[in-house]
Computed example of a mutant assay.
Amino acid sequence: MSAAFIAVCATALAASALTLFSGFGLGTILTPVMAVFFPIEAAVAMTALVHFANNLFKLALFAGKADRRACLRFGLPAVFASFAGAALLLWLADLPPLYAYSLFGRFLAVTPVKLVVGLLVGVFSWLEIAHTLKGRGLPPGLLPVGGLVSGFFGGLSGHQGAFRSAFLLRLGLSKETFIATGVVVACMVDATRLSVYVSHLSVPDVAGNLGLLAAATACAFAGAFVGARLLRKMTIETLHRLVGAMLLVLSALLVAGVI
């Protein structure tokens, strides 16, 4: 069993279980882990597939509990913005390296897509660690704006959860409705960005790892099931900060072109 298989599946299981009550989401954690083993644009697309399948599973667990008005006011702008974010990702992936250098006899290249996604991983990881967005719900009247922001970053790097939670927080939704509404919006964004990524889903890094994707999806399902059974306010501050620190390291490696 390869290191990629073990790392990706273990991450999918743990992240999916934590995503219901942790600031970090599946995509936030899984994307940089995928990027260790695959090109960044393939890593984002592969993570999107697992993320979408997992959200569909969670949608079945919380079926009928979503707030339809919030889904429309937040989700529709997010769908339109995710097109732009996904298109930007693919455009960046086609640009030549910005800088190339050698380190310990290894040729490394800093590409625009690695630089942008790496910086986003770092920024969103820091926001989560510092609790900048946690607990600070934003005015409900800004829901469409929140949808645009969340959808754009969802399409570009998969980081949609932090802004989505911040904007949905002040709606006074029950815990189950809050989660279900977020899942519906996430499914809308995932379906949209995957429709843009589809031209890149046939590349060897994706098509040649369907078994890995299937296993990672199954692990994410298991994690979501466990998370749903344990749904409650949990204090996992140490784990939260440890994961955040690891993501910051991965972010630096991406920006430096090492991975």
Rank of each mutant, 00 (worst) to 15 (best):
P139R: 00
V110N: 13
V110A: 08
G137D: 02
F107D: 13
V110W: 10
S125Q: 10
W126I: 08
L120I: 15
G118D: 11
L133T: 11
L138N: 01
F124V: 02
V113E: 00
L133P: 00
K134F: 04
P144Y: 12
H131S: 11
V145K: 14
V110R: 06
L127T: 02
H131R: 13
V123E: 14
V145G: 14
V121K: 02
A130E: 14
L120D: 07
V123A: 14
L120R: 08
L138A: 04
K134N: 05
V121D: 01
H131A: 11
W126L: 13
R136K: 14
L120S: 09
L138T: 02
L127E: 07
L127R: 08
L138S: 01
R136E: 06
K134G: 06
K134E: 14
P112L: 13
V116Q: 01
R136D: 08
A109F: 03
F124L: 02
L133D: 01
F107G: 06
L127K: 06
G141C: 04
L119E: 05
V110T: 09
L143W: 03
L142Q: 01
V117S: 03
K114M: 10
P139V: 00
V123M: 12
L143N: 06
G122C: 11
L143D: 05
L127Q: 10
H131K: 09
V113S: 08
L108N: 07
T132C: 01
E128T: 14
A130N: 12
